[in-house]
Design a protein around this nucleic acid. Structure first.
Lengths: 364, 364
DNA sequence: CGGAAATTGTTTAGTGGTTGAATTATTTGA
DNA sequence: TCAAATAATTCAACCACTAAACAATTTCCG
């Protein structure tokens, strides 16, 4: 119960437009001022909240002390390995990016162990820089363009990987040896990154959208009511292999007419309007099945959003049963190529936000 | 917290293979025997649990008192209106069907108010019969073949309905006037019915599957980790209008090549193998997107499951990216045509199971 | 300028619900 | 017949929250 209320208070403080007073948090949560005071004391002592200058006065009464997330406490390390770059970033509890480094280089010819070693150096440098800034890196998450199960990269076709234990490789770097490291799919994490980026403080609405990542392959991350849906075995989001033209072009997966053959980066270079139509058909299926109100286009789609938009929307209007009742909103990714890395870092700080009690226990 | 723990105890008792003792419940939940005793006392006093004969002895010691859900307490009233029948059933807390009546008659030529009045009579009779049996009907849920939003049937194409307040019509029946009545989509409720039917006590696994209902139209209900996914606006599951052949047959929805045109009841009568292939293509999309491990075929598909199976599975093998890693299981609906009605009744008793504290408060 | 009103935050006593240990009840088995 | 084992209850202690009183600090208004 205390753990739950700690999280409640922390979230209220995080999602307020201005740093709220203890009394404001109490009003928002339904708890008593006394209870909130006690909880806030713990959160301040544990280095998650700080008192800041009060918000502008509104009337009579003792001035309030504003409560805000600390920018000197726990931080998340976000890592990404993709076909043409390696990247690392550190995000603090407030969601601010405190460190960011991207190394462009084609990873396809690079040996797998080599690539992971380079990423490890990048990650170690990021951690040291962050800790010199007074941050405490609480964990790391790695985004990979492939299927992940049980922490292993089962298959990443465009990297040529199969059954790779990327977390173990990173843990072999001495500076990272004590970090909890998890691995997840790039589209899933990018969806989480977009979720955080599109979240405006004070807005209590729970977002639902499909993030579509157009790279060499096409992946998708589904966010429902503010939560990522991973599928039973973590293999959801393979929109690239949704059938668009049942007897169409053969795909490297063995089937025919997969979306990837019509809207992957190669196809995109050939014919953007064909790509838009194919995307529209596949996305219509998603909306009919899942009633998703928003679709976010990321990866290679983001920069050419304007070109694709009309072609996709035409198919959505035609093929979505409820299009007449409420249209589907289409928008480009806000974070561009950083989405996955940012989402990866977010998972770490989100874990602290969701269970501050666990963080406080670290000091006992 | 007490409310949460009451639900925890009730669920443990409900999901045990044999009626468990208080001590067994304590061990399973992690609560103390003292706490469990206090909670069980309340549940017994409130008429949700009963003490039954102890399970077979295992060794020395005082014999245990078995705890089981009562079959004389709250019950759910499940109603269904469909194209060719009206139906009502009453399900008790243990999940047993205590009353069931189906009235076959084509509803399409019937006036909407007329049909609802007939259903109201059916429902009133069911309630009286159930209460004569010592049950207390806690609420009713109505299954309709159409889109439901804000409690209204927005559109039910095969009944010719539009913006119908079915709950209000039923509440006009004097015997039902005091019941909470909700309305939901037929495929959604059928999915819930199948969920309960496929749930074997003692099996803690949370089920995930897609239920596909082949009627005049084709609907689907998606259950993820034991919970129905309704979509942001409650309009999920419109698999009938997923595009299968982009330039195929025109559909009454205005698009071309919808699944319904290839696997709806009319198409099914013409060519079962074409229907199987079309279903296979659409279902592959679902599995690629959502990583659903099980697909249940209901409605008109259930009786001809054997004929459809191979055709569907062939497409799944070809088109599902992860088919090689783990195959998708295909099975016919266990409840047949009763699935939606049973699921409707289940929603009521599930509400009591999930929040027993609310039920106990009725008596204060 | 001074006191009433307003508002924040803390203190203190009280309560509900849980835990842990001791106690009672009832059986099996030597 | 009595010790051992298991089930369930009782009771004191404790934790976290609530309610209400109180202290601190400001604004408002005569």
């Amino acid at each position: 119960m205390r753990a739950h209320n700690l999280a409640l208070v922390l979230h209220t403080a995080a999602n307020s437009t201005y740093p709220p007073s203890r009394a404001a948090v109490a009003a928002a949560t339904g708890l008593t001022r006394a209870t909130v005071s006690a909880l806030v004391d713990d959160l301040v002592a544990g280095g998650l909240l700080v008192e800041v200058d009060p918000p502008p006065r509104t009337g009579a009464g003792r001035p309030a002390a504003g409560l805000a997330l600390t920018s000197a406490g726990p931080a998340g390390l976000g890592l990404e390995i993709n076909v043409d770059y390696l990247a690392a970033c550190v995000v603090d509890l407030t969601g601010a990016v405190r460190h960011r480094q991207v190394e462009h280089a084609d990873q396809r010819p690079v040996e797998q162990a080599q690539a992971l070693a380079t990423l490890g150096r990048l990650a170690a440098a990021a951690r040291l820089a962050a800790e010199a800034d007074g941050l405490i890196v609480a964990g790391a998450t790695l985004a990979v363009p492939g299927l992940v199960a049980d922490g292993l990269v089962r298959v990443a076709p465009n990297l040529g990987w199969q059954d790779v234990d990327a977390a173990a490789a990173l843990l072999a770097v001495p500076e990272l040896a004590d970090l909890p490291i998890t691995v997840d799919n790039e589209a899933n994490l990018a969806a989480l990154g977009e979720l955080r980026a599109s979240f405006s403080p004070g807005d209590g609405a729970r977002h639902s959208f499909l993030y579509v990542s157009g790279e060499i392959g096409i992946g998708a991350g589904l966010v429902i009511d503010g939560e990522l849906y991973r599928g039973v075995r973590g293999w959801s989001g393979e929109i690239g292999h949704v059938t668009v033209y049942p007897d169409g072009r053969p795909c490297r997966c063995g089937a025919r007419g997969c979306l990837e053959q019509y809207a992957g980066q190669e196809a995109l270079a050939r014919d953007e309007q064909l790509a838009a139509a194919a995307l529209g058909i596949a996305l219509s299926a998603v909306v009919n099945l899942l009633d998703v109100p928003v679709i976010v286009l990321g990866g290679a789609y983001a920069p050419i959003f304007g070109t694709l938009r009309e072609g996709i929307e035409a198919e959505l209007r035609r093929r979505v049963l409820t299009a007449g009742l409420a249209p589907v909103a289409l928008r480009p990714a806000a974070l561009g190529p950083d989405a996955a890395m940012r989402g990866a870092a977010d998972t770490i700080i989100q874990a602290v936000r969701d269970d501050p009690a666990a963080w406080l226990r670290r000091f006992t």
